[in-house]
Write a protein that binds this DNA or RNA. Sequence first.
DNA 1: TTAATATATCGAAGATTATCAATATATAAA
DNA 2: TTTATATATTGATAATCTTCGATATATTAA
Lengths: 116, 116
Amino acid sequence: MDLNLPLAEVSVTSDCCSLATEVLSTHDALRYAEIFKLLGDAGRLRILSLIAREGCAPITTTDLVSELDLSQPTISHHLKKLTEAGLLTRQQSGRKAYYTIVPNLFAQLRTVLELG
Amino acid sequence: MDLNLPLAEVSVTSDCCSLATEVLSTHDALRYAEIFKLLGDAGRLRILSLIAREGCAPITTTDLVSELDLSQPTISHHLKKLTEAGLLTRQQSGRKAYYTIVPNLFAQLRTVLELG
DNA sequence: TTAATATATCGAAGATTATCAATATATAAA
DNA sequence: TTTATATATTGATAATCTTCGATATATTAA
């Protein structure tokens, strides 16, 4: 038998008071992990940040290429993934592609992060 | 010359109104990407969720092993990474290791996600 | 029609990662 | 001291991902 009274021994100094009432289901965990994985890249974070700075004004692939130290194919690749995931929308106008932030999913992610 | 008036052509239907006033620096982007990368794994997300459910009560490695379909070494590995990143704290008591959520960093991540 | 521009896709190389079996370590129980 | 328990580390494999050069596509300009 374990007579360690371990919970008493462990000092609980954290101000943690979880807002998470439900444990993430396997399904939701997979879904959110896929999106967090996209955020787990500095280049993509900066792409999102640059687009967000424009507010409602869309930004083109070329704009991003000129602001980041990444090749045009790499940036196009990131934009595709972010768009497919629902973090961005893409609108073509002439030969330019305009991207904007989709706020919805970001709000969901913030809720998932209410763990502490 | 570009006479497309593209910004007028692109319909701005999004309710985007960015709260992000500053573009993420390269340094911060790297720093946050490293943490989002950790959240980009379903197993780790569920580990965090299970720990958060306990509120302030710490949880042991074995508790997690019994709730997840991952081997004990894999879970220990994830716990180490999450702890090193500052998302968890670890306290040893006897032969058990108790883990708890560190709320601070989660709050920072929520701020970073205020893009839309 | 020909040339230039904007963007996307292809294919490949190199790096990183998740995972587990086996093993090590450290503590507690018998 | 011997055995059982709790956790961590090692080493290896398979899968995934980032990145870029080269190329393709599509649109506009000359």
